[in-house]
Design a protein around this nucleic acid. Structure first.
Lengths: 348, 348
DNA sequence: CTGAAAGCGCTTACAG
DNA sequence: CTGAAAGCGCTTACAG
């Protein structure tokens, strides 16, 4: 019933050459040690066209060559519901660049029962059918990364990932500088007491670290007080806000929009308003799922470009003569002025 | 440098069995035609553990003649910007089911220069690297579908697709019945003059046909006047609306939310309002990108479930003993009452 | 119950 | 310039 796919031998027979020639022609190795007559090449292409032949990437991979497939492994579902808005642009960039470079994308979708994903299912790394992979997502298992490195499997992480003693290839956003810019902007508007409220989230170590680093650098440069305050969302009550205001804090930095909501409602409980009585900013993209806060001061992560860059880097890794020397790429974010930072009340 | 991975022969040697036994043990086929002694099995597992052996998925796929990869080809970009909201749920369903059945997804991303996509790039069907494919999108080229059929390549279309003389496997939504329900609901609210405004769009033949079919069936059943009116968006002016109102039309069906917008503005120009003076409904999902129309009467397409079902059907197609006999599956839509249909003014 | 062998569809030395 | 052959690491009849 199902007609068998044509193989290289079929093409060879039709073109009246040996299978080896077909392979060489297909792989464009017609000018190396071997010279293949123009006519032979033409016959091969004609036969390929006539039979609708397409190389079997699995066999090609086994025989030692590449499959021209890039894996994409995410620690969340690839078509996720929750993080949808955040991850989508990365995937757009990844697809664009893969397309531009004529690679296909192989999505890995491996449940391991527990609901969490892992690269090694039953100990098997199926990423191996691809030439290399893009890894995405914050819930990764460091052990798996280590194992990938040990296997020498080429991959690029989207987002900064550090493992002691290893040099992981990644494409990250410059949270340090972006955060500095936000602080500097607040300072330029007259704020002298700028607090950074964070919720310790072990899952996003590097990203959180970089933002805090940017904050610390900025307050030192500006010689203002460092107020890095651990405060989980549930702890951020109106009383808490009252306390901060009393302490003279006039501007607050948050990592997620979630906190901005809390701030709004806490402020309204106190009869205060944002930004008149208190300025704020988000250290990242206010995802558009939450629209009722207009025009937050924030910065925008170049997610699409990061996706593209990750593909470029990965393909470079796969190429013999690497052209990209630095495998740890950091892209700048774009400051978004927004409207939630205004001069503090006293300076008004 | 890179230590060579142990292979099955290494395990076999260490366990003192033949490679075939190792394969059988690993694949759990120890109870079929072959019986393998407990001790042998134990030796194999010990050797595997000792060597840190893990099966090479590429070799396994080559030998097993199956790639366990499902292709996903869309006639729009897979991670699209424009149609994002509409296609996303299909992809979610596709991923969920592929995951559940342990298939990987191979995304096809083949630009052909013109910006439009085609399955046959340089005349070659690259989908063939997968075991079978899901096809998605409304701009398909019928010629390509015909060629896929001729090649005997297994695929499932998401959405009804008919080609004379062929039986295409698809998973569709029941637009006929869903449209009937909407008309019936309008009728139950007292409407007797229900118009269906459509813009002829050659690209979505079947989908449009089914909706109109549902409308026609409904008006006949209800013995009301059939008013199937071709009216492009640009032609839908306030004058036009005025004309319809004068003709006694009290409710209008549209295929897209776009028209609902036009209706709202046309009505406001005439000093009329929706739904008080005129009821309306959308024959499909009002995509959430357009939020300023609250609560449209409509029906919801089971997109996620369609995606899942398409994968199930495809995998069934790939399996020796097919269990699904009907390859053309139609799933019901869900009526959404909404608030844009109320009794007509006279009956008020 | 177990082993030897062929085969999956390619690529790549190696001979001519 | 081209062909015959080995090999990638598995799986699966097929013999014993």
């Amino acid at each position: 019933m199902k007609k068998r796919r044509p193989r290289q031998v079929d093409v060879a027979a039709l073109a009246n050459v040996s299978p080896a020639i077909v392979s060489l022609v297909i792989n464009g190795r017609v000018n190396g040690n071997v010279r293949i007559s123009q006519e032979a090449q033409q016959r091969v292409w004609d036969a390929i066209y006539e039979l609708g032949y397409v190389v079997n990437p699995v066999a090609r991979k086994l025989a030692g060559n590449q499959s021209r497939m890039l894996g994409v492994f995410t620690y969340e579902a690839i078509f996720p519901l929750e993080y949808h808005d955040f991850y989508y642009p990365f995937l757009i960039g990844i697809e664009e660049e893969a397309q531009a470079q004529d690679y296909d994308l192989l999505l890995f979708t491996r449940p391991d029962g527990s609901g969490k994903r892992s690269i090694y299912k039953d100990g098997v790394n199926s990423l191996q059918v691809s030439d290399g992979s893009i890894l995405l997502g914050v819930y990764e298992e460091p052990d798996e990364i280590t194992r990938l490195l040990a296997e020498g499997f080429p991959f690029v992480y989207v987002g900064r990932r550090e493992i002691p003693g290893e040099e992981i290839a990644y494409v990250a956003a410059d949270y340090v500088d972006a955060t500095r810019q936000v602080v500097a902007y607040m300072h330029s508007q007259g704020h002298r007491q700028i607090a950074y409220l964070y919720d310790h989230d072990g899952r996003r170590r590097e990203a959180q670290h970089d933002r805090q680093q940017g904050y610390i650098l900025a307050v030192r440069e500006l010689s203002i007080k460092e107020q890095l305050i651990a405060c989980s969302a549930s702890a951020f009550t109106p009383e808490r806000l009252q306390h901060y205001l009393a302490a003279g804090i006039t501007a607050i930095l948050f990592e997620t929009v979630n906190y901005a909501h809390l701030l709004l409602s806490a402020a309204s409980v106190l009869g205060k308003s944002v930004p008149r009585d208190i300025s704020c900013a988000i250290l990242g993209d206010p995802l558009n799922e939450i629209q009722n806060i207009p025009d937050l001061t924030s910065f925008s992560i170049p997610r699409r470009e990061m996706g593209r860059e990750a593909v470029r880097l990965l393909i470079d890794l796969l190429t013999e003569g690497h052209t990209i020397e630095n495998r740890q790429i950091t892209l700048p974010c774009t400051f978004v002025r927004g409207q939630t930072v205004v001069p503090p009340p006293d300076n008004g």
